[in-house]
Simulated scan of single mutants.
Amino acid sequence: MQKHQAFWQYQNSKNGRPRSGRTQQNISKAKKMITKNVSQRKLAKQLNTSKSNVQRILNLDLQLKPYKIRRQPFLQTAHIEKRLKFSYWVQNNFTKNDCLKILFSDEKQFEIDGVYNTQNDRIGAVDRAQADLKGGIFQKQKFPQKVMVWIGVSSRGLSPLVFLPKGGINSQIYIDQVLPVSKKFGDDNLGEDWIYQQDGATCHTSEQTQNWCYDNFPNFIPKDKWPPNSPDLNPLDYSVWNEIVNSMKWNKVYSITTLKQQIKAAVKSISNETILHICQNWYKRVRSLQSNNGLFIQ
């Protein structure tokens, strides 16, 4: 376990006498030291015992389990207040069925190197050499090729993809290339009365973009309503992007062209039932902010 990559959650210790190396003194010291998020290796060194003894102390004597540190946006008091205000606004203005008519949207940048998690990705092998031969080495380019993608998601499925130009996106590009796709998908799939959602990115909140939305969408969530630092409230951020990434065959990605092909294939592979389930849970998720005091939802 690497430093800063796991917490130990304390539970009641079991009864019984410790074995060699698991003295009551070492157990007491370990109990105090784990609050400092120290690694097992360093803990073993400071207790003058083996790493296996430390593992037994933590697992058997202290009944602890390892938990990774989870990353989430920092929420200031003002952010929390806006999140709570948004939750009550949704509750007072939308029914559960109304929320199934929301077209959520987001952009994401994909790198040709793919996605690699040092904690979760494992290779089964008898030794390191065999593991390396089976794909145990992750090579990352210094300046990997990238592509930015926009997509919308609603209870009726995923919209067509929009691959955005290299170099970023501004209001004009967003209006010219993204919003017409949003409007067509919404009109074709959600009827005459539907709602468009977008986060607080500059190209979304500019006066030019907001005016376009007022003029062209039946309804949309204006910039003064959507709370900042809230990816946990967008189905794309907390679920759909992961579905796409995990469905991609990264071993077939070796160029921008093949990266785009795999993104398209992954989008097609996600069932409408999966998307519907994700969207159906959104209303409950937003309302849960009230019992969660506006804090981040895992």
Results as ranks from 00 to 15, higher is better:
R122V: 15
G152A: 09
F94G: 01
Y174L: 02
V153A: 09
V126M: 09
L161K: 06
D176Q: 10
P144G: 02
Q177F: 04
G157Q: 06
I169L: 09
D106W: 06
D121I: 15
R156N: 11
D132A: 11
F104K: 06
S105W: 12
L158R: 14
Y174G: 02
I137L: 13
I123K: 11
V147H: 02
N93V: 02
N93K: 05
M148F: 09
I137F: 13
Y116P: 05
D132E: 12
Y174W: 07
W89H: 01
P165G: 01
S105I: 14
Q145R: 15
K101D: 12
F94C: 00
A125C: 11
I102W: 01
K96S: 03
K142W: 11
N117V: 14
P160Y: 08
M148T: 15
T118W: 08
L179K: 05
D98N: 07
N93P: 04
G168M: 01
S182K: 01
Y116A: 11
S159Y: 06
Q91S: 02
T118Q: 09
P160M: 04
T118I: 15
K166A: 07
D132K: 14
V115D: 11
P144L: 06
L161P: 14
K166Q: 07
Q172M: 05
K142G: 15
V181P: 08
Y174K: 03
K146P: 07
P180F: 02
P144Q: 05
G152F: 08
M148D: 04
V147S: 08
Q139K: 15
S105P: 14
Q130C: 08
V181Y: 03
I169T: 13
L100M: 07
G157F: 08
